[in-house]
Simulated scan of single mutants.
Amino acid sequence: MSEIAQGGLTTPGLGRGVRDIRQSSFLLKLLVRKELKVRYRGSVLGLLWSYVKPGVQFIVFYVALGVFLGLERSPRNPDGLPNYAVYLFSGIVLINFFSEALGNAARSIVTNGNLIKKIYLPRELFPVASVWVSAVHFFPQLVVLIVASLFAGWHPDAFQLLAAVAGFVIVALLATGLGLFFGAANVYFRDAENLVDMLLMVATWASPVMYAWTMVQAQLGSVAFSIYQANPVTIGVELFHYAFWFPTTDGSAAMPPNLFSLWLPLGLVVALLVLGLGQFTFRRLEGRFAQEL
């Protein structure tokens, strides 16, 4: 009895948040493997879909925007973006990671409802595992981006490589925080996953993935453009452009002002705040997951 008194009592169904994830790395690896096996069960191409889907997406956008709408620089269109193919694909790679990570994380608790009702394990593992699975799909696309950039004359310095890492970290933290928030909310309100779908549709076009940031600046005032620029996904995409696309240009292209002195720190702070909010909301709601599922 004295041992129980000394150890204290804990509320059933509540974990310790991020600390549980660190201490449950083996379970996290098992969940990632399970998700990958389930996703590609009966699939002929398997992990090759990580190349096929973004490849088709890139071709469609490149032809529609780069060729038909003239966003690519050419002798007939000197005002377009140089090496638009690299510009476009570097943005697509990161936005696809964000979309897949958040979309799957928002559904992860409901999808694993049977497992949650049978045994207890840190529930944060499910949204985090979804982000990790998306990272597994992200890195093959990153390899393709690196090879394409090398053919386009990519010669990065260490600072540009660090910018790519920073962009990925910001987007990964944001996706994890939003995944925790919407994953918990989706247990109680199934409209949450539909809201996430709309959010992802907006996110694809609300960041300079397929168009130049200068086009936005020309249409918006300074205040509205600052709000647009403060979006962590926008910051992550622009960091990827700086890392992979900017070294392949002739120097005539411009990057957003204060990208490193202001927007990178701000993007990291906002992503960490969203992660904290997601963790707080998840902990407040996870106690009744089993009953609600």
Results as ranks from 00 to 15, higher is better:
181 F>K: 02
261 S>Q: 12
245 W>S: 10
273 L>P: 05
68 F>H: 11
228 Y>E: 13
162 L>G: 04
3 E>R: 13
262 L>D: 04
150 L>P: 01
202 V>R: 00
36 L>F: 11
153 G>N: 02
271 A>T: 10
206 A>G: 13
162 L>A: 10
280 F>C: 07
165 V>Q: 00
258 N>G: 11
136 V>L: 11
155 H>Q: 08
60 V>Q: 05
97 F>R: 07
252 S>P: 15
275 L>T: 06
271 A>E: 08
219 Q>G: 09
63 V>H: 04
69 L>D: 03
220 L>E: 13
228 Y>F: 15
195 L>H: 00
138 F>E: 00
227 I>V: 12
109 I>A: 10
9 L>E: 14
50 S>K: 04
236 G>F: 04
172 A>K: 02
130 S>Y: 03
185 A>N: 02
133 V>Y: 07
175 A>H: 02
236 G>E: 08
143 V>R: 00
47 L>W: 08
238 E>W: 08
131 V>C: 04
230 A>D: 09
177 G>H: 01
204 T>E: 05
49 W>Y: 03
211 Y>S: 03
244 F>G: 07
200 L>D: 02
290 A>H: 09
162 L>T: 01
38 V>D: 10
261 S>T: 14
208 P>L: 01
191 D>L: 02
128 V>K: 01
5 A>G: 10
266 L>Y: 09
234 T>N: 14
137 H>M: 01
217 Q>Y: 14
188 Y>L: 04
160 Q>M: 05
212 A>H: 14
61 F>A: 09
257 P>A: 14
254 A>F: 12
123 R>L: 13
73 R>W: 04
92 I>E: 06
58 F>E: 08
260 F>V: 11
27 L>A: 07
4 I>M: 12
226 S>V: 07
268 L>A: 15
272 L>H: 09
66 G>E: 08
193 E>K: 06
205 W>R: 03
226 S>G: 13
83 N>A: 15
143 V>I: 14
149 S>P: 03
270 V>G: 11
256 P>I: 15
263 W>Y: 14
95 I>W: 08
250 D>F: 09
241 H>L: 15
279 Q>N: 14
50 S>C: 08
174 L>W: 02
6 Q>R: 15
65 L>N: 01
243 A>T: 05
60 V>D: 05
240 F>R: 13
225 F>M: 04
167 G>N: 07
200 L>I: 07
8 G>Y: 13
79 D>V: 15
256 P>F: 14
104 N>E: 14
180 L>C: 01
259 L>M: 14
283 R>S: 12
247 P>C: 08
81 L>W: 09
272 L>Q: 10
158 A>T: 04
226 S>W: 12
189 F>R: 09
160 Q>I: 00
197 D>M: 12
242 Y>W: 15
150 L>D: 00
248 T>F: 08
12 P>V: 15
142 L>N: 02
147 V>A: 05
101 A>D: 12
236 G>I: 02
160 Q>W: 00
46 G>F: 02
282 F>R: 13
134 S>I: 01
72 E>Q: 11
88 L>P: 08
278 G>A: 13
101 A>T: 08
246 F>W: 15
47 L>C: 05
63 V>C: 03
165 V>A: 09
137 H>A: 02
10 T>H: 13
79 D>E: 12
